Simulated assay, not measured.
Amino acid sequence: MKTIPIRWGVAVAVLTLVTACGSGTATTNASAPRGTRVTSCGVTLEIPAPPRRAVAMEQNAAEIMLTMGLADRMAGTAYQTDPVPPELEEAYARVPVLAQQYPGREALLAKKPDFVYSMRASAFAPEAAGSRQDLAKLGVPAYLSSNDCEDRALIPATAEFEAIFGEIDDIATVFGVRERGQAVVADLRRRLEEAKRTAPQNRHTTLMWYYSGTKTPAIAGDTGLPGTITRLLGAQNAFADVKQQWPEGNWEEIAARDPDVIVLADLTRGGDGDSAEAKKRFLREDPVASKLTAVKNDRFIVVPGSSMDPSVRSVTAVEQVGQGLARLYG
């Protein structure tokens, strides 16, 4: 039996035993050489063969699969929040879009999926696909990112890039394309190290990551990916003391902290304050927000909203924020 344990840590390959950073444990069975068993957020998934009709429940999951050339293995995708990167546009266009947001259980099962993948637990809510346990009873294994486990106690204390790399390895293992996954991770590691090396170290610069909403803005606390990126770039998160990924903020508290720079998520889904331009308009017109130092000095950095959550785009966020800080502070 060839065993591929997946755990948090640094990837090391030793003959047939391979340890990689990730959210679960993938085991390849010798009697069914292409089957795997993966533990994802405490749920063991039995995958008898590489999936042929997978469904990605939101854009980040879809882009991880498409980056590994798996468009021909996908029966559907959903919940697009940003324009697809140019290099993935052609592949994305070949995958049926099942819903503007999450497809319901009936719409999902109508595609006869043999694997479901999401980076958000909300995809498996009763009004969406339903629980992963219920899908398993129907013979449909469903993988969930460790960044948003249903059981919040299973979510790591911080969102680290090693977890993203491990998740890519998990998915590559499930689909029998592990070498592709390793190549993707190697490139992301190279870019991440370069972004860290070239970023200006602004130890006293405070960033506020602003995701969505206007009356009650969703901002980044310390435990999500923005907190990790801020530390990697040598800056400070204005809400580093908040031990949540995306707490609801209020403008009086934000004004009291008065961040030096605001990192804006650019979302295309059309909600209140979703696009970067809508955020800028609000910030400049609101009687409280307009007095912020970052607003008065036009210190904004814009990144795609999907790159603020762990995904194949997350290294791009490090690059963009690092370049933005260099532009603002030279």
Rank of each mutant, 00 (worst) to 15 (best):
S118H: 05
V84F: 05
E252G: 05
Q133K: 13
L15S: 14
D148L: 01
A235H: 05
A62P: 00
Y210H: 06
E87W: 13
T81S: 12
R178T: 04
T216Y: 07
E127H: 10
A61L: 08
M308D: 02
S311Q: 11
T214V: 06
R94F: 02
D274R: 01
G249V: 05
I171A: 03
D170G: 05
A71M: 00
E194I: 08
T67K: 08
T206C: 10
D187Y: 01
G224W: 09
D274E: 10
L154V: 03
P259W: 12
G270C: 06
A20K: 01
R37Y: 03
F124D: 04
L192W: 12
T77L: 13
R94T: 15
R105W: 03
D222M: 08
L66A: 07
A157H: 14
M308I: 02
A276N: 07
A136Y: 07
L328G: 03
I64P: 00
S306Y: 05
V10M: 07
L66H: 01
P50H: 05
L98E: 09
I168V: 12
D222Q: 15
A163S: 11
P259V: 08
D151Q: 12
Q323Y: 04
P217L: 14
D258E: 09
W209D: 01
T293E: 13
A91C: 07
E319K: 09
G234E: 04
E160V: 02
V97R: 15
R189C: 11
T28M: 10
V84K: 01
M74N: 00
R191T: 07
T19G: 07
V263F: 10
I301T: 03
L292A: 07
A256E: 10
A153H: 11
P226M: 13
Q101Y: 15
I47Q: 01
F124I: 12
K280E: 09
F175A: 02
A71E: 09
V10R: 10
G224V: 12
Q236C: 01
G9Q: 10
G9P: 05
A75I: 02
K196R: 15
E63C: 08
M74V: 02
A157M: 08
A199F: 11
E106R: 15
T44S: 12
R178H: 11
G69P: 12
G227K: 08
K280W: 03
L292D: 05
K215E: 10
P200D: 02
R281A: 11
P5A: 09
V263Q: 04
W251G: 01
A238N: 05
E193Q: 14
M208E: 09
L88R: 06
Y102V: 06
L70V: 01
L98A: 10
